[in-house]
């Protein structure tokens, strides 16, 4: 009886009202809005794990090299007349990076065995080999960077135009200060595990292996090309070495192989070039991944303490912030922050 009277009433309101529809759409919208970022975050988390795995491979390869030769691979070596003053390096050949020396410890013997180290990177057979793609050299979050870094032009003595040197997102740590990788700087300035011509082993890490960074992440700022190209960034990281320009005495680019602790992690895009070429950075939101000398891999937040002490301030007695302490191997300072 009751039902019968109700039915005709309902039939008059068969359709949804506009407001009801809007509410439904709003609810669906909110649900999608909540779900989509979550899915993206999960995907980013997966990429970050892959990236940590890459850095662990690199860290272990460096440590295996140390076990074999009682020193970590040299940060970078140069061929040709050695120890010329900076800016006067005519005839000094291109530099091989630490990354070329650890290839046998990353199951890349097929490349390593054919590389001709006394020759330049731009000479054959090196020219073809340094374009080889190394699977664990690239962070999966850096998907929009070029695969190769081209150097100069064909008329340059050290030009590496086609396809160039294979790209990477991993750089060695050259201590706490700018220019800490340059071979001609005082020893206490070169306080990282790596520098040009470095010979450090575990015995030189007086801060302890678990308090010192071996390698970390760096990103591409340019277009994978080094000169005469708009947007080119000279110091973008590359795997086999930093071949040089043959122009104006501005020879090598150590920052393409090393980064230091004096710049904070992930400086914003409008920071100065002098800053960006020295800074560790990543495409992961909030920080970057680092491999420590004890084989552990840590994701360090970009808010980690860093008072950007300069070398002159340091020898003048100023202390280092947490991040700079991690990048230096022999500062003797306690790391209080939890990594």
């Amino acid at each position: 009886m009751f039902r019968k009277t109700l039915r005709p009433q309902f039939s008059r309101h068969k359709a949804f009202t506009l407001v009801e529809l809007l509410v439904v759409i709003a609810i669906i919208g909110i649900l999608i809005g909540m779900l989509l970022p979550a899915v993206q975050q999960v995907r980013e988390a997966a990429r970050r794990v892959t990236c940590s795995n890459n850095l662990r491979q690199i860290g272990l390869a460096m440590m295996n090299y140390e076990s074999s030769y009682q020193q970590f691979p040299p940060g970078g070596i140069w061929i040709g007349p050695d120890k010329l003053p900076r800016g006067n390096r005519a005839g000094r050949g291109s530099g091989w990076a630490w990354s070329a020396f650890i290839l046998p410890f990353m199951e890349q013997n097929n490349i390593y065995d054919v590389l001709d180290f006394p020759a330049r990177l731009s000479d054959q057979p090196n020219r073809n080999l340094v374009a080889s793609i190394i699977p664990s050299a690239v962070c999966p979050s850096a998907s929009n960077q070029p695969q190769h870094f081209k150097i100069g032009t064909d008329s340059d003595a050290f030009g590496m135009t086609d396809p160039g040197i294979t790209a990477t997102n991993y750089v060695a740590c050259a201590g706490a200060f700018f220019a800490g990788a340059y071979y001609d700087r005082p020893l206490e300035r070169k306080n990282g595990i790596y520098a040009e011509d470095s010979t450090n082993g575990f015995g030189d890490i007086s801060d302890g292996a678990s308090n010192t960074i071996l390698a970390g992440e760096a990103i591409y700022y340019g277009v994978g090309q080094s000169r005469g190209v708009p947007g080119a960034f000279f110091w973008d990281p590359r795997w086999f070495g930093s071949s040089r320009h043959n122009a104006g005495g501005r020879a090598d680019a150590p920052e393409a192989l090393f980064r230091v602790g004096r710049s904070r992690i992930n400086p914003p895009s409008f920071a100065g070039n002098a800053e960006k070429r020295n800074a560790f950075g990543s495409h992961h939101p909030g920080g970057a991944t680092f491999g420590l000398a004890d084989g552990s891999v840590h994701f360090l937040r970009e808010t980690i303490g860093n008072n950007e002490t300069t070398y002159n301030q340091y020898i003048g007695g100023q202390t280092l912030g947490t991040f700079q302490r991690l990048t230096a191997r022999n500062d003797g300072l306690v790391i209080a922050e939890d990594l």
Binding site: A232, N266, F270
Partner: peptide, 27 residues
Amino acid sequence: KFTDDEYGAFIGSNHVSIGTGDVKADN
């Protein structure tokens, strides 16, 4: 700015550095 999409500076005492000098991106 702290990052590209986050405005602000750390609360507390800050050393301030202001300069125009830089290196060109293509060296």
